[in-house]
């Protein structure tokens, strides 16, 4: 299945792109998606512990089961205000 990954803030700058298309086995979790992302964007791997993850507009945990076509966002801690 194909999942779209959006990168925000300095994650986008580090990766040099705002969007990735990742192919995964059906039934993969967010944790498996992150492993796949870090294979193609190793600069992001060191930020894994501080990475916030959303599917659509809701936060999700690493064990969340992804669906084909999901839009996943990865970003650093937020800083509004």
């Amino acid at each position: 299945m194909r999942v779209t990954v959006h990168l925000w803030s300095y994650f986008r700058d580090l990766a040099g792109t705002a969007r990735l298309e990742i192919e995964l086995p059906v039934g993969s979790s967010i944790a498996q998606l992150l492993d796949a992302v870090y294979r193609v964007q190793p600069k992001l791997a060191g930020l894994r512990k501080s990475t916030l993850i959303a599917v659509g507009v809701d936060y999700q945990r690493a064990d969340y089961p992804l669906q084909p076509g999901d839009e996943v966002s990865l970003f650093p801690p937020v800083q509004g205000g």
């Binding site: 925000w8 300095y10 959303a54 966002s73 650093p76 800083q79 509004g80 205000g81």
Partner: peptide
């Protein structure tokens, strides 16, 4: 509200 905003609302500053 402001404390929670700074925890969950995806806004970043440079």
């Amino acid at each position: 509200l402001i404390d929670e905003m700074k925890r969950v609302v995806p806004i970043w500053k440079k």
